[in-house]
Write a protein that binds this DNA or RNA. Structure first.
Lengths: 144, 144
DNA sequence: CGATAGATACATTTTATATGCATGTTATAA
DNA sequence: TTATAACATGCATATAAAATGTATCTATCG
């Protein structure tokens, strides 16, 4: 049971954006180099976050992207649900499981994954940065 | 985020064993045919469950396997932890994440996966069968 | 001792994920 | 208004994890 790297990358991208000085924009190339993630992957994640209005993307020269909401309004549960393409922890339908009509395991698993997401829902992007702003800015080598 | 089929298969194997009449044994071939799971896969899962003393396996002619504990003592959290080989939902170490020293996401994810397992821990194999014994025996075509 | 059944090891296939490559589209600035 | 920079989109390929296949070994019963 593992999250995809997409989700991991997405969170990291958001952390970076949350620490960028106001009015600054990030670019796909910057992020790709910063985290050593393939350009294409960053591209897709940024696009996804943009469609979901978590960030705002601007095409064209001088373009880039930045948070579209305050970090304290960006819920980690939502972000994970957005980037993780399957939260169906078990697939009973696709393989025609014989005991499906009598089986209650799916229900229990659903209860468990709801509990998982509910924990994430308690936190926002701001919780990820508020206590370590200085550390992050050093790592990112950002100046104010 | 998905469980492996191994885990799914393991649970199904245990359900079948829980419904077998006392003193009866199951065999790898029976299970393989019953659930349409490759022989080799069943082999591995049975072996794993045997090593963990969830079931008892007997080699040789007239051999087979059966539950080594009462269904109400077989905890679903334990079974899932046993069969799922990685419960590290995110891997921060292996890819040398730059922000690791400042990052608190791992901790939140750990809290979430603990919540996931804790739900499973509330249930036992007996919870999976007690309310549907008749349905299962029909599906399995077992007679008493 | 032969047949049966799990144990073990390794090879191959399959699938999901991740990456790569190419091209399109939009916006800015010279 | 055109060159250029930046995101958008689609498809192809590579990688890694999972699942399956094949073979052989070992234990046990009759």
């Amino acid at each position: 049971m593992q999250l995809t790297r997409h989700t991991d990358y997405g969170i990291r991208i958001l952390i970076y954006l949350a620490l960028l000085p106001k009015e600054d924009k990030a670019s796909i190339d910057t992020i790709s180099a910063l985290y050593d993630i393939s350009r294409n992957n960053v591209n897709k994640i940024v696009h996804q976050l943009g469609k979901a209005k978590v960030i705002e993307t601007r095409r064209g020269k001088g373009g880039g992207f930045f948070l579209d909401q305050h970090p304290e309004n960006i819920n980690l549960g939502d972000v994970v649900m957005l980037l993780e393409n399957t939260l169906e922890v078990i697939d009973c339908e696709n393989q025609k499981c014989r005991i499906l009509p009598a089986c209650s395991f799916k229900g229990i698993i659903n209860e468990a994954s709801t509990a998982f997401i509910d924990v994430l829902r308690k936190y926002t992007l701001d919780d990820l940065i508020k206590s370590s702003k200085q550390d992050f800015t050093t790592i990112f080598n950002l100046s104010f």
